[in-house]
Protein backbone atom coordinates (compact mmCIF):
# COMPACT_ATOMS: atom_id res chain seq x y z
CA UNK A 1 0.00 0.00 0.00
CA UNK A 2 1.24 3.49 -0.76
CA UNK A 3 2.20 5.62 2.18
CA UNK A 4 3.56 9.13 2.28
CA UNK A 5 6.07 9.79 4.97
CA UNK A 6 7.59 13.12 5.89
CA UNK A 7 11.26 12.31 6.17
CA UNK A 8 13.67 15.11 7.03
CA UNK A 9 11.11 17.68 6.07
CA UNK A 10 10.31 16.22 2.67
CA UNK A 11 7.38 14.05 1.67
CA UNK A 12 8.47 10.63 0.46
CA UNK A 13 5.93 8.29 -1.04
CA UNK A 14 6.67 4.60 -0.78
CA UNK A 15 4.78 1.53 -1.81
CA UNK A 16 5.09 -0.77 1.13
CA UNK A 17 3.36 -3.78 2.54
CA UNK A 18 2.04 -3.18 6.07
CA UNK A 19 4.70 -5.49 7.44
CA UNK A 20 7.57 -3.30 6.26
CA UNK A 21 9.22 -1.61 9.21
CA UNK A 22 10.24 2.02 9.05
CA UNK A 23 13.81 0.80 9.29
CA UNK A 24 13.60 -1.40 6.22
CA UNK A 25 11.60 1.21 4.36
CA UNK A 26 14.33 3.75 5.00
CA UNK A 27 17.23 1.45 4.21
CA UNK A 28 15.93 -0.69 1.39
CA UNK A 29 13.46 1.61 -0.33
CA UNK A 30 14.24 5.22 0.43
CA UNK A 31 17.97 4.35 0.34
CA UNK A 32 18.45 6.43 3.45
CA UNK A 33 21.01 4.15 5.03
CA UNK A 34 22.33 6.29 7.85
CA UNK A 35 19.83 4.56 10.13
CA UNK A 36 21.39 1.25 11.05
CA UNK A 37 20.10 -2.22 11.74
CA UNK A 38 21.89 -3.97 14.55
CA UNK A 39 19.36 -6.32 16.07
CA UNK A 40 15.99 -5.64 14.42
CA UNK A 41 14.30 -6.21 17.81
CA UNK A 42 14.62 -3.03 19.83
CA UNK A 43 17.67 -4.26 21.69
CA UNK A 44 20.55 -2.14 20.43
CA UNK A 45 19.43 1.39 19.54
CA UNK A 46 21.27 1.49 16.20
CA UNK A 47 18.03 2.38 14.42
CA UNK A 48 17.19 5.39 16.58
CA UNK A 49 15.35 8.12 14.71
CA UNK A 50 13.11 10.98 15.76
CA UNK A 51 9.37 10.91 15.34
CA UNK A 52 7.96 14.37 15.97
CA UNK A 53 11.22 15.19 17.70
CA UNK A 54 11.22 12.24 20.08
CA UNK A 55 13.67 9.41 19.83
CA UNK A 56 12.20 6.09 18.84
CA UNK A 57 13.33 2.81 17.29
CA UNK A 58 12.70 2.42 13.59
CA UNK A 59 12.91 -1.38 13.74
CA UNK A 60 9.77 -1.64 15.88
CA UNK A 61 7.61 0.77 13.92
CA UNK A 62 5.70 -0.12 10.81
CA UNK A 63 6.17 2.43 8.07
CA UNK A 64 2.41 2.62 7.59
CA UNK A 65 1.95 3.78 11.18
CA UNK A 66 3.77 7.03 10.49
CA UNK A 67 1.69 8.76 7.85
CA UNK A 68 1.47 12.45 8.83
CA UNK A 69 4.24 12.18 11.38
CA UNK A 70 7.53 14.06 11.12
CA UNK A 71 10.47 11.66 10.83
CA UNK A 72 14.05 12.81 11.23
CA UNK A 73 17.00 10.59 10.44
CA UNK A 74 20.68 11.33 10.80
CA UNK A 75 20.68 12.52 7.20
CA UNK A 76 18.40 15.34 8.27
CA UNK A 77 20.48 16.56 11.17
CA UNK A 78 23.24 18.64 9.64
CA UNK A 79 22.30 22.00 8.17
CA UNK A 80 23.78 21.69 4.73
CA UNK A 81 27.52 21.32 5.11
CA UNK A 82 27.47 22.46 8.67
CA UNK A 83 27.52 19.65 11.16
CA UNK A 84 25.13 19.63 14.08
CA UNK A 85 27.16 20.42 17.22
CA UNK A 86 26.56 16.87 18.40
CA UNK A 87 28.09 15.46 15.23
CA UNK A 88 31.11 17.70 15.63
CA UNK A 89 31.44 16.75 19.28
CA UNK A 90 31.37 13.05 18.44
CA UNK A 91 34.28 13.58 16.06
CA UNK A 92 36.21 15.68 18.52
CA UNK A 93 35.82 13.24 21.40
CA UNK A 94 36.20 10.14 19.24
CA UNK A 95 32.79 8.97 20.36
CA UNK A 96 32.96 6.00 18.01
CA UNK A 97 35.28 3.58 16.34
CA UNK A 98 33.58 1.50 13.69
CA UNK A 99 30.82 4.09 13.43
CA UNK A 100 28.00 1.62 13.07
CA UNK A 101 26.18 2.48 16.28
CA UNK A 102 26.97 6.15 15.78
CA UNK A 103 23.90 7.36 13.89
CA UNK A 104 21.72 5.90 16.63
CA UNK A 105 23.93 7.37 19.34
CA UNK A 106 23.81 10.82 17.79
CA UNK A 107 20.06 10.76 17.24
CA UNK A 108 19.59 9.62 20.81
CA UNK A 109 21.97 12.26 22.11
CA UNK A 110 20.25 15.06 20.21
CA UNK A 111 16.82 13.99 21.49
CA UNK A 112 18.24 13.85 24.97
CA UNK A 113 18.84 17.58 24.86
CA UNK A 114 15.10 18.02 25.19
CA UNK A 115 14.50 15.39 27.82
CA UNK A 116 14.56 15.85 31.58
CA UNK A 117 17.84 14.05 31.98
CA UNK A 118 19.93 15.08 35.00
CA UNK A 119 23.16 17.02 34.72
CA UNK A 120 25.75 14.49 35.80
CA UNK A 121 27.80 12.11 33.69
CA UNK A 122 25.97 9.27 35.42
CA UNK A 123 22.66 10.72 34.27
CA UNK A 124 23.89 10.86 30.70
CA UNK A 125 25.16 7.29 30.91
CA UNK A 126 21.77 6.10 32.07
CA UNK A 127 19.91 8.10 29.42
CA UNK A 128 22.24 6.79 26.70
CA UNK A 129 22.12 3.16 27.80
CA UNK A 130 19.60 2.25 25.13
CA UNK A 131 22.34 2.60 22.55
CA UNK A 132 24.83 -0.23 22.63
CA UNK A 133 28.33 0.41 21.37
CA UNK A 134 30.31 -2.77 21.00
CA UNK A 135 33.43 -0.76 20.22
CA UNK A 136 33.03 0.59 23.74
CA UNK A 137 33.23 4.24 22.83
CA UNK A 138 31.10 5.19 25.82
CA UNK A 139 33.49 7.64 27.51
CA UNK A 140 33.79 9.65 24.29
CA UNK A 141 30.04 9.57 23.81
CA UNK A 142 29.42 10.92 27.31
CA UNK A 143 32.04 13.62 26.80
CA UNK A 144 30.45 14.65 23.51
CA UNK A 145 26.95 14.83 24.96
CA UNK A 146 28.13 16.81 27.97
CA UNK A 147 30.05 19.26 25.84
CA UNK A 148 27.01 20.00 23.73
CA UNK A 149 24.73 20.24 26.75
CA UNK A 150 27.06 22.62 28.51
CA UNK A 151 27.31 24.77 25.41
CA UNK A 152 23.53 25.04 25.62
CA UNK A 153 22.79 23.75 22.13
CA UNK A 154 19.34 22.44 21.37
Amino acid sequence: MPVTLRINGRPVTLDVEPRVTLLDALREQALLTATKKGCDHGQCGACTIHVDGRRQLACLILAVMLAEREITTLEGLAAGDELHPMQAAFIEHDGFQCGYCTPGQIMSAVALLNEPCGDSDDDVKECMSGNLCRCGAYPGIVAAVQQVRRAGAR
Partner: peptide, 9 residues
Protein backbone atom coordinates in the same frame (compact mmCIF):
# COMPACT_ATOMS: atom_id res chain seq x y z
CA UNK B 1 12.34 -0.21 32.32
CA UNK B 2 13.64 -0.60 28.78
CA UNK B 3 15.38 2.46 27.29
CA UNK B 4 14.65 6.09 26.52
CA UNK B 5 13.62 5.25 22.98
CA UNK B 6 11.37 2.37 23.98
CA UNK B 7 9.71 4.40 26.72
CA UNK B 8 8.83 7.05 24.15
CA UNK B 9 7.00 4.39 22.17
Amino acid sequence: GASGQLRNM
